[in-house]
Amino acid sequence: MHYLSLTEFLRSGTAELARGPVALIFCEDDVEIPATLTHHLAAGFRRVLAFMPPDIALPDAVAQQVIRIDHDLARGDTLTDAVNRIIPQAAGQWLYYCYNTEFLFHPFCETRSIGEMLAFHTEERRAAMLTFVVDLYAGDLDAQPNAVSLDDAFLDRSGYYALAREDAANGWAPKDRQLDFYGGLRWRYEEHVPYARRKIDRVSLFRARDGLRLREDHTFSDEEYNTYSCRWHHNLTATICSFRTAKALKRNPGSTFEIQSFLWHNSERFDWSSRQLLDLGLMEPGQWF
């Protein structure tokens, strides 16, 4: 199915939102779009919506499995606005959003679907899940100048940290069960990354409801959605393994010539498994065993 705009989809295609979980994939360029869509289809999302510029071609085998919506981020069609327009139409359903060249991993994803995980998370009376955006990068930038390689991907095995999230409306006191997380390429190359974009936490999985709003900093208008766990025990978290920062650093004229390689002594080859991410502490299984 192909819709020429989000407005057209919201006018005649919202029946596709009746059964979740639903993935919203926002394509900024033409890099690894089929791989991104296929990964999330395999994860178990019942519907995958691909927001793409109209001039990007999509292989028929993938196009037949997704709902394509013409949406050009480069021309000002923002992700935040699109998600907020979809939320009231999908009330009660679990939604997920990411960009192309980003790949969601959840605990035990090799044998358990995204739907199974979210069913458990719902039973724990949670309506949102914290995800960490872990930077991936190609090991050989001469061979892959855009820093994207599925076969030669690396990540940082250390260098991640968290700071208290302060509440400006409450005398800058720390917010309850909320932290700002940092690390990866945004930390190592922070001089090239605007301050507001250095965080690696994102509430990417959430249950839609009327009145809920996504904010530009990837948090929600309901503060409970922004917490990393409930009050009585630790909850599940998930990871978005993303080439997006590496791609931007190599595309930006201000940083590309200063970076000959992203590899350092704490680089580790990514094996595309949830076990590796769990062992590195980059996501948590909570009470789900």
Score class of each variant (00 low, 15 high):
residue 60 D to K: 13
residue 142 D to G: 06
residue 31 V to A: 13
residue 279 D to S: 07
residue 157 R to P: 03
residue 53 P to C: 15
residue 190 E to S: 04
residue 15 A to L: 15
residue 275 R to M: 12
residue 186 R to A: 02
residue 54 P to E: 13
residue 26 F to L: 12
residue 229 S to Y: 02
residue 213 R to A: 11
residue 144 Q to T: 09
residue 200 I to S: 02
residue 10 L to P: 07
residue 273 S to D: 14
residue 19 R to I: 10
residue 40 H to V: 04
residue 98 C to N: 07
residue 130 L to H: 14
residue 151 D to G: 02
residue 78 T to H: 03
residue 211 G to Y: 11
residue 102 E to P: 11
residue 222 D to Y: 10
residue 19 R to W: 09
residue 286 G to E: 02
residue 225 Y to Q: 02
residue 176 D to K: 04
residue 6 L to H: 02
residue 65 Q to T: 15
residue 283 M to T: 06
residue 114 I to M: 09
residue 253 P to M: 14
residue 268 E to D: 05
residue 97 Y to D: 02
residue 215 R to K: 06
residue 12 S to A: 15
residue 164 A to C: 08
residue 234 H to R: 15
residue 167 D to P: 01
residue 252 N to E: 12
residue 279 D to R: 07
residue 108 F to E: 05
residue 191 E to T: 06
residue 28 E to Q: 08
residue 189 Y to V: 06
residue 14 T to V: 14
residue 42 A to G: 04
residue 103 F to I: 09
residue 289 F to N: 09
residue 277 L to K: 01
residue 21 P to L: 06
residue 208 A to Y: 03
residue 186 R to Q: 02
residue 115 G to F: 04
residue 183 G to K: 04
residue 128 A to D: 03
residue 31 V to D: 14
residue 114 I to L: 09
residue 256 T to R: 15
residue 223 E to A: 12
residue 243 F to V: 09
residue 27 C to N: 08
residue 105 F to Q: 06
residue 146 N to W: 09
residue 52 M to N: 05
residue 138 A to Y: 05
residue 287 Q to I: 06
residue 129 M to Y: 03
residue 246 A to S: 11
residue 39 H to W: 08
residue 187 W to D: 00
residue 154 F to S: 07
residue 268 E to Y: 05
residue 94 W to Q: 10
residue 132 F to Q: 00
residue 98 C to W: 00
residue 97 Y to V: 07
residue 101 T to R: 13
residue 250 K to D: 14
residue 131 T to F: 00
residue 196 A to F: 05
residue 38 T to G: 05
residue 36 T to M: 04
residue 41 L to P: 03
residue 147 A to E: 07
residue 153 A to Y: 03
residue 182 Y to C: 00
residue 88 P to Q: 06
residue 216 E to N: 08
residue 111 T to E: 08
residue 174 P to A: 05
residue 282 L to G: 08
residue 77 D to A: 10
residue 51 F to W: 13
residue 37 L to H: 00
residue 54 P to V: 08
residue 198 R to H: 00
residue 8 E to D: 09
residue 222 D to L: 11
residue 43 A to K: 09
residue 234 H to C: 15
residue 211 G to T: 13
residue 125 R to N: 11
residue 85 R to C: 12
residue 25 I to P: 02
residue 273 S to L: 12
residue 239 T to C: 10
residue 169 A to P: 03
residue 176 D to A: 07
residue 145 P to W: 15
residue 34 P to Y: 10
residue 250 K to Q: 14
residue 163 L to N: 07
residue 233 H to T: 12
residue 199 K to R: 09
residue 283 M to L: 13
residue 264 W to N: 13
residue 254 G to A: 15
residue 104 L to F: 01
residue 268 E to M: 10
residue 261 S to Q: 11
residue 222 D to H: 13
residue 131 T to M: 01
residue 267 S to T: 07
residue 245 T to A: 03
residue 193 V to Q: 02
residue 184 G to A: 11
residue 23 A to T: 03
residue 137 Y to S: 05
